[in-house]
């Protein structure tokens, strides 16, 4: 039952936010979608120790897949999510066969390159993707044929929050499973995992595929809720900011991903509206402060404070 407490808290925050910021639902929806993206990154970086800067490749492909599916096949939102997730998983699996053989700087560079290649491809295939103009003309059917997407974004927000809950719950179960334990083992010592008979390479491809599905779902949600997919879904910035949000919140426990995303995007929203360059100052110092002062992220802050207080006594 203790494990349900964070979910109750999450629900509470989601409801409060809904009533407290009725005119910012589009922004709140973006936050929720980004949370799903950052969760997928936590599965890789935080749980398995796979450092990647290419989450945009998976996210962007999910977005385009869901957008194209809605335009050309069927505008059902839930079916679109599944298509987006599947597309993300397929891209992750295929690219993962190469990527997951590498580590360190090489892996970082290769993941960046894969996202860049996808961006160029999407640009090149403009007859399909709309190129630099973006993919428009997405109009979604009501969710489950019942709830119409409205202009203020109430349906969109509630729909995204529900997806976030489901994704978080599934990832919680996965992390607690034998598979999840083996991922944590890989993070601590891939060499030892091999020595107990785990095919580490295949396991890494498997978790990359799973993360691809989650990132693809996030992309699909973004496509559905903004009714537009642009080339910027593949931006390096998408991957880099997701990483910053994750480390800011704290890795490996999912809740950190949620907290980091919320704090980062809230600070961004406020600071960037004041002055975009001050925003870069603020985020720069924020990032340095996290690395130097709270390396375990905001989620480790209570413990850090407790330890400092303990030392004072």
């Amino acid at each position: 039952m203790k494990s349900l407490l964070p979910f109750a808290l999450m629900a509470l925050v989601a409801v409060v936010a809904f009533y407290a910021f009725p005119y910012n639902l589009a922004f709140l929806t973006r936050v929720v979608i980004t949370m799903i993206l950052v969760l997928s990154l936590d599965l890789l970086i935080g749980v398995t120790g796979i450092d990647t800067l290419g989450q945009a490749a998976l996210y962007g492909t999910g977005a385009y897949a869901a957008g194209l599916f809605a335009v050309h096949v069927w505008a059902d939102p839930v079916a679109g999510l599944l298509v987006g997730g599947l597309a993300g998983a397929v891209v992750a699996f295929v690219s993962g066969l190469l990527l997951m053989r590498t580590h360190g700087l090489t892996l970082l560079m290769l993941t960046i390159a894969v996202a860049e290649v996808f961006q160029e491809l999407a640009n090149k295939l403009d007859w399909l993707t709309g190129g630099a103009d973006g993919l428009g003309g997405i109009t979604m059917n009501p969710v489950f044929g019942t709830w119409q997407f409205d202009f203020i974004g109430q349906t969109g927000y509630i729909y995204a929050v529900c997806v976030l809950f489901i994704v978080t719950a599934i990832l919680k179960v996965v992390i607690g499973s034998p598979f999840g334990l083996s991922l944590r083992g890989i993070k601590d010592s891939p060499a030892r995992m091999r020595a107990i008979g785990t095919p580490v390479g295949r396991r890494r491809v498997a978790v990359y595929t799973l993360a691809g599905a989650v990132a693809g779902i996030a992309g699909a949600l973004a496509a559905q809720s903004t009714a537009l997919v642009s080339l910027s879904v593949y931006d390096f910035q998408v991957s880099a900011e997701a990483m910053i949000m994750l480390i800011l919140g704290g890795t490996g426990r999912l809740w950190g991903a949620l907290i980091g995303t919320a704090v980062f995007m809230a600070v961004h929203e406020v600071a960037a509206s004041v002055d975009p360059f001050n925003w870069l100052f603020i985020i720069g110092f924020l990032v340095l402060a996290v690395v130097y002062a709270v390396p375990r992220g905001l989620i480790g802050l209570p413990e850090e404070i407790r330890r400092m207080v303990g030392r004072l006594k």
Binding site: G176, S177, P178, S182, M193, I196, G197
Partner: peptide, 19 residues
């Protein structure tokens, strides 16, 4: 200790049950 035991029994591919 669980990890090698689960691995020996071929259970580490399981996604659902708790470890």
């Amino acid at each position: 200790l669980r990890l090698p035991l689960l691995e020996r029994r071929g259970l580490t591919g399981r996604l659902i049950r708790r470890s």
